[in-house]
Amino acid sequence: MMLSPRLSIALFILFIAALLTTGIFWLFLSDRHGFTAQDEPLIAEIINREFRTGDIIFPAPDWDIGFTRYLRDGITDISYTLHAFTKEELSDLNNNGVNVLWFVVDSEQRWNNIRDRLALREQGRFPAGESLVIKAQASGDAVAKLFDFTDDLALAKEVYFADANGNRDTCSWDRDRWKCGNQEWQYVGPQRTLMAGRWQKANWAHPRTERTLHVVFENTVGATALVLGTSFLERAYREENGKPVRVTVTVDGKELLKYENENIKKLYRHRVALPEGAQMIDLAFWVKFDGARHFVFNGYLGK
């Protein structure tokens, strides 16, 4: 009724090996990474001293947030989404070197991996016991930012919804957003959010059924390039029958870029050259049905 003696003995030996592995692992190895309790206040002390508004902190590993216990109030720009970024996307977070990216790492090895993967330029390092706090800049081939669609949203030339007949509903600037209706979601406004798992600033731009949302910017900065990111938020792409958003970028009446932002977890990022002397840049978003279309865009004009 039993297996052959040899196989039984082999499985028995395997079981003994499993016992040893389990005993040793859970006693000595299961808590070998992350930030030590001694390092956590040291890390926080450095950040409390060095952090400036607009900076972003990336803890790595992102599952150990013990050091945040010691952070001062007001430091809230902490991102646990580093793993999702490409080096180009990370470059978009740079604000022409004004703000910096902070990396809180539990080992030199981890920092080396992050730096190499994302082509980061180290600007300074602050040891905190066995951990490191690194001040860095992205060094991808980023376009120099001249006009940010989120920071400079108030400067948009106009924001409006248009139907198929060309009838317009104009949005008006109200404190920190373009109000486009009485419903809570009917606005275009900046927020910090997750774009397909990457935490960053973006503009909420919930489209409306069979109407086109236009956000028009004037190129007053002499930009020669445009970077545009769009994506659905979690609630939207988890909606199984959610409709895609059609994105169109028109420059001085000529179509420059057109694509469908599908109802999936994806950051659509495009970088395109602007025609010489480009003046009016019209970002347009259209959807067949607006149920749960939590949609955002960001990007900038640059050189």
């Binding site: 992350g34 599952w63 947030i65 013990g66 001062r72 007001g74």
Partner: peptide
């Protein structure tokens, strides 16, 4: 952002993982 702080009053962790 709503609370103006990232500082937790308490964390529940195992092996440093919260």
């Amino acid at each position: 952002r709503e609370f103006g702080t990232a500082r937790p009053l308490e964390l529940s962790e195992t092996d440093s993982v919260y």
